[in-house]
Write a protein that binds this DNA or RNA. Structure first.
Length: 296
DNA sequence: AGGCAGGTGGCCA
DNA sequence: TGGCCACCTGCC
């Protein structure tokens, strides 16, 4: 068992709350964070990094990482987008004329969009098709254990696409990936053949990046938008999933709109930070649904 | 016990 | 274009 560094406060422009930290790490953006009630910290993995996170009573965010992992603090600041001005982004959202958005923003103060490694975001959201968050997490965990590097005692990184290309579809199915296994295998083969492809896509403007991403097997509009929003910091990406369809139909009275029309509405109504707005109303809707379910 | 879950692609009109 | 359906698996 290797040692962990003492807790240190991360230099961050705007604070989290317990709730917004939880929602950011474990609300459907990322799938590799778990909270230990006993130890009172979050443990997470991204890229070849592992860290523990916790909030102090004053909402300072503190981190710890394996002692031998130099550079983790820099990577963490990048991952959490510590220096990005999220309040300015909120200022540019249309909450002044949109009571539902305003309520969602108020309910999730401190929520932000992660900058995950792009390839990992593509992989995780390829797993997400018709799955709920706990199940997506299980799939990611199994892929990491089977094909990813061990970072510290018992904790594995997600496999790189090159590592995945060595797996057979059968091996992937054995991890419980179901029909997603075929898409992941085919995508892995393509990315192994074209090592620069993901970097090129990430560096492209949003529209072009999306156009090129949906050429990958199993990547449709929704998964492409998730990967670009959570893995490439393209905040104009607006994933339209079943939750957002519900929100727009019920809260914005847009019944009878097709998903593609709803996507267009979202981009126009919410603007340049549509994906950030999406995350607020997504979280708000899920919180409401969970409350209603537990009342029964 | 059967339907459904943060979808996608293929096939039909 | 637009609607329908199969596709794995697990959970209610």
């Amino acid at each position: 068992m290797r040692e962990w560094t003492p807790w240190k406060t991360l230099d961050i422009l705007q604070p989290f709350s317990e709730q917004s930290l939880s929602e950011t790490l474990n609300g459907g953006q990322a799938f590799r964070w778990n909270y230990s009630k006993k130890d009172e910290y979050w443990l997470g993995v991204w890229g070849q990094n592992v860290a523990r996170l916790r909030l102090t009573e004053k909402d300072c965010i503190q981190f710890s990482h394996p002692i031998d992992h130099l550079g983790c603090e820099t990577e963490l600041a990048r991952y959490l987008r510590a220096k990005f001005d999220w309040d300015l982004a909120i200022n540019n959202l249309p909450w002044r004329s949109d009571p539902h958005l305003e309520a969602a923003i108020s309910a999730f103060t401190g929520l932000r969009i992660l900058k995950q490694p792009f390839g990992e975001a593509v992989l995780c959201f390829l797993c997400s098709a018709t799955k709920q968050i706990p199940q997506i997490k299980v799939m990611c965990e199994r892929m990491a254990l089977r094909f990813g590097n061990e970072l510290t005692a018992g904790i594995h990184a997600l496999p790189t696409w090159n590592q995945l290309a060595t797996a057979s579809e059968t091996e992937l199915r054995e991890l419980g990936l179901g029909f997603r296994a075929k898409n992941i295998k085919k995508t892995a083969d393509i990315l192994a053949q074209h090592p620069e492809l993901l970097d090129q896509i990430e560096a492209s403007p949003y529209a072009e990046a999306k156009q090129r991403l949906v050429e990958l097997p199993g990547v449709g509009e929704k998964i492409a938008d998730c990967a670009l929003l959570f893995g490439a910091a393209k905040l104009e990406a607006f994933p339209v999933d079943t939750w957002i369809i519900k929100v727009l139909e019920n809260r914005y009275d847009l019944q009878a709109w097709t998903p593609s029309q709803l996507a267009q509405f979202g981009r126009i109504h919410y603007g340049a930070y549509a994906g950030f707005a999406q995350q607020f109303v997504f979280s708000y809707e899920r919180a409401t649904a969970v409350t209603q379910r537990s009342k029964k």
